[in-house]
Simulated scan of single mutants.
Amino acid sequence: MPLMPGAEPYHHEGGKVGVLLCHGFTGTPQALRPWAEFLARAGLTVSLPRLPGHGTTWQEMSHTGWEDWYGELEHAFGELRGRCPDTFVMGLSLGGCMALRLAEVHGDAVRGVVAVNPSVVNDVPLLRLAPLLKWVVPSVPGVANDIKKEGVTELAYDRTPVRAAATLPRLWSLVQSELHKVTQPVLVYHSPQDHVVKPASVRLLRERLGDNLTVVELPNSYHVATLDNDAETIFQGSLEFITAHASVPLQQD
Rank of each mutant, 00 (worst) to 15 (best):
A40K: 01
L132C: 02
N220I: 06
L32A: 06
L179Q: 12
A31M: 11
K149S: 06
R111K: 15
W172H: 12
S62G: 13
E67D: 11
A165P: 01
L129V: 04
Y157C: 07
G15N: 08
S221H: 09
Y189R: 03
D194F: 10
G27H: 06
L239F: 14
W172R: 07
H54G: 09
G82H: 04
E74M: 08
G210M: 09
I242E: 09
K134H: 01
E150N: 00
Q251R: 15
L205E: 11
P199L: 00
G237N: 11
A103Q: 12
R41D: 15
N145H: 06
S177P: 12
L20G: 08
G53K: 05
L132S: 00
L32V: 06
E67G: 11
T57A: 02
V19G: 02
N229Y: 06
G237T: 03
L179Y: 05
A225G: 10
G14R: 03
G43Y: 07
A7K: 01
L239A: 04
R128W: 10
L209F: 05
S191G: 11
S201I: 05
V224C: 04
G96A: 08
L3H: 02
E74G: 08
V120Q: 03
H54V: 00
A200W: 11
T153S: 11
D146I: 07
P249I: 05
S247N: 11
L179N: 12
